[in-house]
Amino acid sequence: MKILTCPVNGPRPIQEFTYGGEVRDMPCPDTSTDTQWADYIFNRTGEPGVRREWWHHGPSGVWFVAERDIIGDNVLKTYLWSARETP
């Protein structure tokens, strides 16, 4: 059984989680061009490598961020959005 660590509830079976897609920055809807907005709406970073992703723990309703290698399926770390490192 694959285990994912929820930053609030600790290690739980993967079946308890829902995948929420990669973490993306929204451009400002008022100032962005149509091209920038279309890029934000449709395009994704589908290529291999480590990515920041949203995950949701169903039973407790916690949304959090996981850093995961999408080739090896290895989760490097998980944390709450509020605990992210801001550059």
């Binding site: 890029d39 395009n43 994704r44 589908g46 290529e47 999408i70």
Partner: peptide, 17 residues
């Protein structure tokens, strides 16, 4: 493997695997 190849030419697409 398209997402590997599109990176080589600098294209963006909605593809997820």
């Amino acid at each position: 493997w398209t997402t590997h190849i599109q990176k080589m030419v600098g294209l963006r697409s909605p593809l997820v695997i």
